[in-house]
Design a protein around this nucleic acid. Structure first.
Lengths: 150, 150
DNA sequence: GGCGTGGTGCAAACCGATCGCATTGGCGTT
DNA sequence: AACGCCAATGCGATCGGTTTGCACCACGCC
């Protein structure tokens, strides 16, 4: 398996909470719980996965609340949204900047491969096209080793 | 502007029609019209754009017919679908294999930059992860020269 | 040219995501 | 520590792009 660089979830959680404070948003238990899940972003969870994970602690929490808080954290720039046309967007609040993803088409797991920097490619595109590149998206779709052997 | 390699729309159209025949699908005027638009895929049209473009020739054609035929051509492997989480998927039937795209976030135009092959990256990912890579997606989002000067 | 079946047009259904609203509760103020 | 404002929550209703069901139509084998 590829080595995966990641940040300390505690530090990421603190950074997100800091953004809440700066933007004068209230620190509700539900909000903090969503932030905590995203700070780790184990497995690049979708809204459903976040919702399920918090069912034990917040049995009455609404799915709408998860949606709203994920969107809030996204608007604060503290989570990377991986949108998919078929729905079920996934989120990465541990590394909230664009990076490549490796997606298993069968079990839907998503991991972060370590790749030679895309900086060169981005620079190449900017120079050749005249575009001002704001962000990018790079996904590899395939079958993971686990699913291959199943 | 980046030079863009593309295929002869006539040849692409013939190839798609050939697939229709092989798969025993009827050659209706609406189906052929959709295939003809996709063979060129000027501007990477979405379903709406295809529908609009064919209004003059087929004023009574249903949007559902466009959807069904685009999906058919996709299932035949003759069009590349560029799905977006916010909807409005775009299609490329001229180069129906994965390749990078450069997308203007303002006017939504999509062009094909010429880049050093991604083969090396794909191979790197496969070797390092053990995944069997089936396809990929690589988009650069930015502001095109036209929109920058507006 | 006739027939069978797949294709079309229309409208209804679908469904994840979002919104409206009444209630709740975080947190600045006193 | 208690108050009170207004953002946040939970719930149900709603939305809009896409898909589906169905009756009618027409492509293409014979």
């Amino acid at each position: 398996m590829i080595a995966v660089a990641h940040y300390d979830p505690e530090k990421r959680f603190a950074a997100i909470v800091q953004k809440f404070r700066e933007s004068r948003h209230k620190l509700t238990p539900q909000r903090l719980a969503v932030a905590r899940v995203l700070a780790t972003s184990e497995g690049h969870p979708g809204v459903d996965a976040i919702y399920d994970k918090l069912q034990d602690d917040f049995p009455t929490m609404s799915l709408a609340t998860v949606y709203r808080n994920v969107m809030l954290i996204k608007s604060l720039g503290e989570v990377l949204e991986l949108g998919f046309p078929e729905g079920g967007n996934r989120y990465d609040g541990n590394k909230p900047y664009p990076h490549p993803h490796l997606i298993c088409m069968q079990c839907k797991k998503i991991i972060d491969p370590e790749l030679a920097s895309l900086k060169d490619l981005t620079r190449e595109v900017m120079a050749a096209s005249g575009f001002k590149i704001v962000t990018h998206r790079m996904d590899f779709f395939g079958i993971c080793p686990d699913c291959q052997s199943r």
